[in-house]
Design a protein around this nucleic acid. Structure first.
Lengths: 217, 217
DNA sequence: AAGTATTTTTAGATTTGTCTAAAATTTTAA
DNA sequence: TTAAAATTTTAGACAAATCTAAAAATACTT
């Protein structure tokens, strides 16, 4: 498996998951910041290797083998993210770029031992679940903060947007995974929220609330 | 810098160090298990980037910039080796292959933090010195065990051959870095040695003795 | 010093992954 | 339902890194 192939597989999983829904070459090209014609070329190569089903003019979906491959890469990516934050004091907005490189390192022992060093973490620094060695992968029970009714309480368990800008905003406002958030009030006009977190009161925009995952209490 | 370029720079340093001695394309090809014609191509590319001096039909040597690059890669390689052994329980014969991959990861913060996590180690698991961030690099004062006279004492500080076969031999015979070795006797016929190590007596061949570095006491 | 052997380079081909521009197909919409 | 718009594929080109086979340069040897 080449690095490029791995990146395509990961992107296809990101866009379509394990479903058989066909993902267009255009969508993949957009996500990977490349051209549709390049995607077509790669789609054929991946189909030859039985990692994807490719239907001309329709798109691609991952085969069982492709899903397995994708989960292995995601497992590596997220374990490395945990390592960077827990052991090397990276902030959660710094990890992605380096993990993108580390995820391609080939060594089963390396990943198994890293998993052990980190105490077999279940979630990465953004709250996303880490697939097990065998590819088990349970999406956490969660919902967007914006979907909670007034007076409801939830524990912050993840972020949808993982951009540096958003993550740094959260750091600046001391909003971190594990914190309990209570919705004090909703503003109909702009859908902004008044929340309580960590004993503080905060006014947050709808854009923030639609990118924060919470687990209802 | 591409991965291939980095590997060439590393090999040239390995064969010629920081000297201006020209290394033949043949020697490089042999070391890298590739063809001399491929080395010629790369030599031109590296010369374009001012990483090597290339003299047609004579060979290449590293420029100052090339040496700096080589030391940065070696620093990364050796720090990762320490990490694998100290944190992930790799044995010293398992680290090379994985470190070959990890040494190409690009992130200054990653290496700085890794260095700190490992407590700023001075030597890698094979006893080779780790260049500092600024490229400082002092070869340890050492000599081959085979060069020691009878009754001399030395501390084991490194290995010349880093093959799995040799390293596993050392493990099996409980010869490790830091152990004190005393030469009890030399056999003229085959240059084998009778040594004392860790309270035990051991007969070792000349081939072993010419691949073990000690620091005379 | 000339001729052979060795080393090194050049020329041309291959693979991977990418691109642009043009052709083919599918979708949308009047 | 047919023309226009959008999407997707093909064709041809390019760069990196490699190879083989042949040519060129250097080194050895008598």
């Amino acid at each position: 498996m080449t690095r490029a192939e791995e990146n395509y597989i990961k992107t296809i999983f990101h866009l379509g998951g394990a479903t058989s829904q066909l993902i267009s070459t255009n969508a993949i090209a957009e996500e990977m910041e490349t051209k549709p014609s390049s995607v077509t070329d790669m789609a054929k190569r991946l189909a030859d290797k039985e990692l994807v089903n490719y239907v001309k003019y329709q798109g691609v979906s991952l085969t069982v083998k492709g899903v397995k491959t994708a989960l292995a890469i995601i497992r590596k990516h997220r374990l490395w993210e945990v390592f960077l934050v827990k052991k090397l004091d990276f902030t959660w907005d710094e990890v992605h770029e380096v993990a993108e490189q580390l995820e391609h390192i080939k060594s089963e022992k390396l990943i198994d031992q890293l998993d052990a060093l980190l105490d077999f973490p279940k979630y990465d620094p953004h709250g996303d679940p880490i697939p097990s060695k065998t590819g088990e992968f349970k999406e956490r029970d969660k919902q967007l903060l914006s979907e909670l009714p007034v007076h409801a309480k939830g524990v912050c368990v993840g972020v949808k947007d993982t951009s540096s800008a958003f993550l740094r905003f959260l750091d600046k406002n001391k909003i971190a995974l594990g914190h309990t958030i209570t919705i004090l009030d909703k503003e109909d006009f702009d859908d902004s929220l008044r929340i309580q977190i960590d004993g503080r009161e905060l006014q947050i925009s709808n854009q923030i609330a639609t990118n924060l995952y919470v687990k209802k209490e």
